[in-house]
Nucleic acid binder design. Structure first.
Lengths: 228, 228
DNA sequence: CGATGACTCGTACATCGCACGATTCATCGT
DNA sequence: ACGATGAATCGTGCGATGTACGAGTCATCG
């Protein structure tokens, strides 16, 4: 029987010597190529822009050929997500004296990466934790622990930061897409300022300094986390 | 021309006297009924479980009849989301001395509501802000302001709390759905504990005290927000 | 009584993910 | 040298989806 590779559909393990590429018409299909093009599509067209047919078109292959390398569409999402979230480690692994700077740097990088691929933000919460995510969490955990956060507080601290970054990135990414909705909301606000006087006055919905707000909130949270 | 109601598809405004319901076979279609059944479907089957055909079936109507009352499927999502997030105001509108308790109470209610309808958490970030959400934000803003948070910090404070609640709820809801994935992740962790020693030791992924963790992180954040 | 407009619904279409089975081709044991 | 094996590709087809279109029903009112 033609044993379709198991759930983790694997490609040929041994590197085969390129068997004479006829012209340079099309490089052979591979999980790497699929993922790369999928990321392009997602970046350009958003989550709904990725269809198996379009993916195959861009790859110059038949649709069903994809399924040799990939289990199904969900699998494509998992792979693209993981590929995008790769973390080029912190500058040095040594003992940095500035734990707070380290945490801020890594979380800002995390956010920036997801904002470069806005679809990733909406995907991440509902998919499993890939190795790249885990190593980020590991780094967080180690740094906080070294900074003196009590063991009993450690998990709560990590999840707090995770939650904050996820919420901030998701919100930012979605608000970006609907500037006009924001205008509409603001108009409703201005018009109904009797109902929402406070947030109307502070112009909550018009604040465009996303980066600054993120940083500020992160500082609040880290203030609360710092061992007193 | 048969003027299909504008973008905000409106039903007949004047309440018409029930024109003799033939038996009690089927109450007439209405936006309210559509939304109510849609919520049921979403609660029972999740986001993918809601299809226009299923919705029509449950309502005992033809599929296309829905489109008289509703613009499209997105509209259904907007309406259900807003309907679910209605906030029965804080106990008293007076000046409560315990601002922190008020904030915690309202945010925990928010989270609980969304967890009762897990689909809402994943929908909220990408949809416009409905009136119910706005009034929650207004309440937050007012309370924090009254508590002494500086005007310059107010927006950042509100967004921090928003981000935290969104991230926490989303994460909780999605982890709930994939217990086995968590088990798998944990196994990977245990097996590869050389790579992730710290989070393996703290059993980060096995911590099931979601409510406690949420509360703890919220306390951290509020500590940081409290006027020093 | 004919016109209007609110409301319902069946049919049809484009698009989607993917199951199935046929097909090609390099490799290897004999 | 030659069949067998299995990796890899792909066309066809199925069931499901959102919704455009236009034909229907029926109460109301000039």
């Amino acid at each position: 029987m033609t044993a379709k590779p198991r759930s983790a559909s694997k490609r040929s393990q041994r590197t085969k010597l390129p068997p004479m590429q006829e012209a340079s018409s099309e490089p052979p299909l591979s999980r790497e190529r699929i993922v790369a093009i999928a990321v392009e599509l997602l970046d350009a067209q958003g989550v709904d822009g990725l269809t198996m047919r379009r993916l195959a078109d861009r790859l110059g292959s038949g649709v069903m050929s994809l399924y040799w390398h990939v289990d199904n569409k969900e699998d494509v999402f998992d792979l693209t997500l993981d590929s995008v979230l790769e973390y080029r480690g912190s500058p040095e692994t040594g003992e940095s004296p500035d734990w707070r700077g380290d945490v801020v740097h890594m979380l800002e990088d995390w956010r920036a990466t997801m904002l470069r691929h806005p679809w990733s933000a909406s995907l991440l919460p509902r998919r499993a934790l890939g190795p790249n995510i885990l190593s980020r969490l590991e780094m967080l955990s180690k740094t906080l622990s070294r900074a003196g956060v009590a063991d009993a507080d450690l998990n709560a601290a990590i999840w707090s930061l995770w939650n904050y970054v996820m919420g901030a990135t998701l919100t930012r990414a979605s608000f970006d897409l609907s500037e006009e909705d924001r205008a509409a909301a603001q108009q409703r606000l201005t018009h109904l300022s009797e109902h929402y006087p406070t947030i109307e006055r502070s112009r909550l919905l018009l604040d465009n300094d996303w980066d600054g707000t993120f940083r500020k909130g992160l500082d609040f949270l880290l203030d609360g986390l710092s061992p007193r």
